[in-house]
């Protein structure tokens, strides 16, 4: 009986987290347009959602952007983590500090700073500006994920490989990458999620020719509550859920 207060407290907080999302998903299946009263199960809003061509364009843009950004961030971030772990070099601490600062620096400051950079370099706001911005804010998260994994490696593996005459590139492709791929995959998935969900930075560096999903949702939400948005949010939530579960599983599996 001593555990009862703890359990009820946990339940209360979990309910606080999940009830709004569950209600949202439930109402995405409600027949009625305005009323909160249950008018019967319907997939009408999903049908409307799937026939909205503009929305689909935004979805494809977001997915494509997310994949490009996650892949680039995975490569650069992975290399950074490997360098931080394996080499001693001039400015190592500075690099460390810079990544730390990038994680802590507020999104809005990163957004406006990139906006100023792009406007001075006369980069047209659109796909490329978004891609560069997304890669930049994903890199530190990949570094963190990969680095926390790589420090658990047995250092003697590299020593042994070196003694046996392996070059750096061989060590990278034959030892580090096979051992590191779960962390790299997790980093990729987290970057992809971050990229797909980002509103603040994208808000500043997006252009009218390349609309992405979060900004589309934002502009729809600003106009008021509509059942299609419920459906859209439910679909997006389902996608995030899938990605989180995959990334958790890939991180947990120990080689």
């Amino acid at each position: 009986m001593k555990q009862l207060p703890s359990i009820s407290y946990l339940t209360a907080i979990y309910l606080f987290f999940y009830i709004p999302i569950i209600v949202l998903i439930a109402y995405s299946f409600n027949q009625a347009q305005y009323s909160l009263v249950w008018h019967g199960f319907s997939t009408r809003w999903y049908q409307e959602l799937f026939s909205d061509a503009d929305l689909w364009t935004a979805v494809w843009h977001s997915l494509f952007l997310g994949m490009c950004a996650a892949t680039s961030a995975m490569c650069i971030g992975g290399l950074t983590a490997i360098c931080l772990y394996r080499y001693s070099f001039f400015g190592r601490k500075l690099l460390y500090g810079l990544i730390f600062i990038l994680i802590l620096s507020p999104d809005i400051v990163m957004g406006i700073s990139l906006l100023i950079l792009f406007s001075l370099l006369q980069v047209t706001l659109g796909f490329w500006s978004l891609l560069l911005a997304h890669i930049t804010f994903c890199i530190p998260f990949v570094v963190v994920t990969v680095y926390s994994r790589i420090i658990s490696f047995d250092e003697y593996i590299f020593e042994a490989a070196k003694d046996l005459g392996a070059k750096d590139t061989v060590i990278l492709t034959r030892i580090i990458l096979p051992l590191l791929w779960p962390a790299l995959l997790a980093g990729w998935l987290l970057s992809f999620t971050l990229s797909i969900d980002d509103v603040i930075i994208s808000y500043f560096v997006a252009g009218p020719d390349f609309e992405i999903l979060p900004l589309k949702i934002y502009s729809m939400v600003r106009l008021g509550v509509k059942p299609e948005i419920n459906a859209l949010c439910a679909v997006t939530f389902g996608l995030t859920l899938l990605l989180v579960i995959i990334s958790q599983l890939s991180l947990r599996k120990k080689p």
Partner: peptide, 15 residues
């Protein structure tokens, strides 16, 4: 919830 879009979670609060 940590990884769910905070925009969507904000919207769910409106409901």
């Amino acid at each position: 919830p940590f990884w769910t879009s905070s925009l969507i979670r904000t919207y769910s609060m409106i409901t």
